[in-house]
Amino acid sequence: MRYQHWIPLAACAICAPAFSAQYLNAEQAQKLIFPEATAFRPQDVALSLPQMQQVEKLAGLAARSVNWRVVGAYNGDKLLGFMVLDDVIGKFELISYAVGLNPDATVRQIEILTYRESHGGEVRLPAWRRQFTGKSAQTGGLTVGDGIANISGATLSCTHLTDGVRRIAAVAQVALKK
């Protein structure tokens, strides 16, 4: 007698592919954030312990990392600003994003590079991302509910991205501001 084994449909749910969408790579993001740039130069940014403490005080969050992925944008010899690459957890998965900063450490623009969650992708909408423009760690307004609107169904993505941008704005204030 032959036996047939059936796998319950619910067991196949663990085999389902994860959702992920890559919208931009780092090079595309830097050209989008700084279209007038003629050169991009990677910069080593390693925070000292006192700088990490300053970042924590400004952001109200742990500095999280000593080393930051930073690219300087230039038009000839003129510094246009910086792009900082980072990842934050959405609800379960990482969200990769880039923050464009002006030389005075204000936010120029943010771009979502890769969004891996099945819900909450509305954080990629231009209207939501524009809320960050012109804000800095010192001026405030970089928290959900105080300068940044929440998106229903994307609360964790909104909160974690906003926290990440606030942390980067503090890093810019402490280590990048010219």
Rank of each mutant, 00 (worst) to 15 (best):
A98M: 10
W128N: 03
V165I: 15
E117L: 01
I89A: 10
D104I: 09
E93G: 01
S152A: 12
G164C: 12
W128I: 04
V144K: 07
G153S: 13
I110Y: 05
T143W: 05
I148F: 13
S152R: 01
D104M: 11
G140D: 01
V165H: 14
Y115I: 08
E122W: 03
I89R: 14
T162L: 08
I151F: 14
T139D: 05
F82Y: 15
G90S: 01
F82E: 05
K135Y: 00
I95P: 03
S152W: 02
G141C: 03
I148S: 13
T159F: 14
S136E: 06
V174S: 07
T162K: 06
N150M: 09
V107W: 03
G134M: 03
A149V: 09
G147F: 09
T139F: 00
D163S: 08
L125G: 07
L142V: 03
I95D: 04
T159E: 15
T162S: 10
V174W: 09
Q109L: 12
T139E: 04
L125N: 13
A98K: 04
P126C: 04
T159K: 15
A137Q: 00
L94A: 14
R124Y: 06
G134S: 03
E93P: 02
T155G: 09
V144G: 15
A127F: 06
H119A: 12
V99Y: 05
T159H: 15
V165T: 14
T114L: 05
D86M: 02
G121R: 06
V84M: 02
L94Q: 11
C158S: 15
A175I: 13
A175K: 12
T114W: 03
L113K: 08
A170K: 13
L85C: 06
V107R: 00
Y97M: 05
C158W: 05
L85I: 09
R108Q: 13
T106C: 11
H119Q: 11
T133E: 14
R130K: 07
T114I: 05
G90L: 01
A149S: 15
L156M: 15
R129F: 02
T155D: 11
L142C: 04
L94F: 11
E111Y: 04
T139A: 07
P103Y: 04
K91V: 10
T106H: 10
T133R: 06
Y115C: 07
D146G: 04
V99P: 04
R166D: 08
G164K: 11
R129S: 07
S152L: 03
F82G: 08
S118L: 10
T159G: 15
D163M: 05
A172M: 08
L113T: 07
V165C: 14
S96Y: 12
A149R: 09
L156K: 13
F92L: 10
L113F: 08
E111R: 02
A154I: 13
H160I: 09
Q173T: 15
D87H: 14
A137P: 01
V88Q: 07
Q173D: 14
V84T: 02
G141Q: 00
T133S: 08
Q131R: 00
T159I: 14
G153A: 14
V107C: 05
A170M: 11
V174N: 06
P126K: 06
T143P: 00
